[in-house]
């Protein structure tokens, strides 16, 4: 069964199309990398799919149902740079936000919620930073707090926007481990990613995008030099160097 189906998504910024008629679907339990050059609309695609920004047209189905009715199944990890880390709060509080849907309006987090949040921090190796003010965390640690928050949501489909951007080795390891765990639990993961050299190691599915979808499917059949050339155009000479061990002929 397809966990996610996007139909003819078109997004326009300042009269310039950012995405044109993007349609694709990913099977349940897959780990999909969303790949494409700068400005290809990768982040725009997941934001539009989650209705965080307006789309001119298009629809999104989650397990065959309209997205609107399935929001509770979605976990989203935004780019770290999108929030103000000087906000007066600690790591545990941020992770607790992942439980707010379950907690509901006008109610406070119970001890059980706090236990849950702590367990999520532990999963990403951040248990000793629970009470640390978030501005005192390194970039990688902040990313792991966001991962723990997503984990706390206990979603079925996870969207991550460039989680590997500018993180340390420990965080990279934590992200990879988390993705493996999620896959094992049958969860579906979509990741905006730009490091082509790691695509084959991390993902079993790839959506290759450059404003339009170039190709989508299992990594072996999509992540080819031919397709990359179509997506990246002129910059392919540089690409062949970086993916010498990667894309197949």
């Amino acid at each position: 069964m397809n966990a996610l189906t996007v139909n003819k998504m078109t997004v326009v910024y300042d009269k310039q199309p950012a995405l044109e008629h993007v349609s694709f679907s990913v099977p349940e339990g897959s780990l999909t990398g969303i790949i494409g050059p700068n400005g290809a609309g990768k982040s725009t695609l997941i934001k539009a799919a989650l209705q965080l920004i307006p789309a001119r047209s298009g629809s999104v189905e989650v397990f065959g149902q309209p997205y609107k009715t399935q929001k509770q199944l979605i976990g989203y990890v935004p780019q770290r740079s999108e929030v103000d880390w000087d906000f007066p709060t600690n790591a545990l509080d941020i992770v607790l936000m992942g439980r707010y849907r379950q907690i509901g309006w006008f109610k406070r987090a119970t001890n059980k919620d706090i236990e849950w949040a702590r367990a999520c921090l532990e999963k990403v190796g951040m248990e000793e930073f629970a009470k640390r003010q978030i501005s005192q965390l390194s970039g990688g640690q902040q990313q792991r707090v966001f991962l723990a928050r997503a984990l706390a949501q206990d979603a079925s489909i996870y969207f991550m926007d460039e989680p590997f951007a500018g993180v340390d080795a420990a965080t990279e390891k934590a992200i990879i481990q988390l993705m493996k765990d999620w896959k094992q639990q049958g969860k579906t993961v979509l990741v905006v990613h730009h490091d082509l050299s790691t695509v084959e190691d991390y993902f079993d599915h790839v959506l290759l995008l450059n404003k339009r979808p170039i190709d989508c499917g299992p990594t072996q059949s999509v992540f080819t030099i031919d397709n990359l050339e179509k997506a990246y155009g002129g910059s392919i000479a540089f690409l062949q160097k970086t993916t010498a061990a990667g894309g197949r002929q």
């Binding site: 509770q72 979605i74 935004p78 936000m97 992942g98 928050r149």
Partner: peptide, 11 residues
């Protein structure tokens, strides 16, 4: 206030 995108995401 902290993260409007996430807030929207959790409904």
């Amino acid at each position: 206030v902290f993260d409007p995108s996430f807030a929207k995401g959790i409904g």
